[in-house]
Design a protein around this nucleic acid. Structure first.
Lengths: 151, 151
DNA sequence: CAACGATTGGTGACGTGTCAACTATTCCGG
DNA sequence: CCGGAATAGTTGACACGTCACCAATCGTTG
């Protein structure tokens, strides 16, 4: 017997699905127009910038981003072709590879970050009070815990 | 001067971004494995089922789904090739086209819906109390309003 | 009615994401 | 030290989304 969603749940679910789709699309569109970066590019560059060394193993990066390794591999190839990152052989493990920020990549992320944060603020946080923000964080953590939990 | 996110906002934002990515991926994976449908297929089929007639103009469907027409056009071609929907000429307007559910499409959505709702319940609503659900709905509506608002 | 702008829908190119399979290396038990 | 399992990363095929553009048709205005 399927437990369908009641009215309260439907309102939340439909709203969430619509928000998620449109917020992503809008942030992507703005970032792309403003900086020529995709959201995926942005996330990769931020992860690389977070490291003091700006040099990471591919799987470490995949772990940090929670991406599948094949997705990351494809994406790194595209970013490398555009000159945003570089790859380097790993001396300790001949299977491995390092990813590092290029000068161009650093320039791109420095230019892209401020308007992107501003967009997030304008579209999301300027419309929420502290209680809403905390509620959003709690919901996100609850859902993530359930996804991570074994079936 | 960029207004960066404070700690409370960062917690909410990082959580939201991670939740959104992983929830989508997980629901997509389960739906695909269970029914061979993508989330996009599911949305199209639900929109068609919602109409009493199960026959909609393409742009009307695009409006209902909030999709770009070219995305919809591409997607309908793929769904048609798989036998999930059919297209029909519109007699009133020779430019137009109707989209309608095929018998196969009806079977697919009937089979897919119950386990999908169950997954949403398991991953989301079973982890939230009424206050959380209402908060999520409020946040979604606030953000959607800001996206729709003129810049 | 002729002309022109707007509307309906589709197409091709390209970037993105997933799955399954593959190569090269490393690790580990015997 | 040898042989197989595990690990690091890549690749190819294919589904998906967006952008820019196009063809056909409609409707309105002169």
């Amino acid at each position: 017997m399927t437990r369908w969603l009641d009215a309260r749940e439907q309102r939340a679910w439909r709203g969430y699905v619509a928000m998620q789709a449109q917020l992503n699309a809008e942030l992507h569109r703005r970032l792309q127009a403003e900086s020529g970066l995709s959201l995926a590019d942005f996330d990769v560059l931020v992860a690389l910038t977070d490291r003091a060394t700006e040099r990471m193993r591919v799987l470490e990066l995949a772990e940090a981003l929670q991406w599948e390794k094949s997705r990351l591999s494809h994406h790194l190839s595209r970013m490398q072709k555009r000159g945003l990152i570089e790859r380097e052989d790993c001396p300790d493990d001949a299977r491995g590879a390092f990813v590092l920020l290029s000068a161009e990549g650093r320039r791109a992320i420095d230019a892209a970050a401020p308007p992107h944060v501003e967009a997030v603020r304008e579209l999301v946080f300027d419309g929420l009070d502290d209680a809403d923000v905390d509620a959003l964080a709690r919901v996100a953590e609850a859902v993530l815990a359930r996804i991570a939990a074994p079936r």
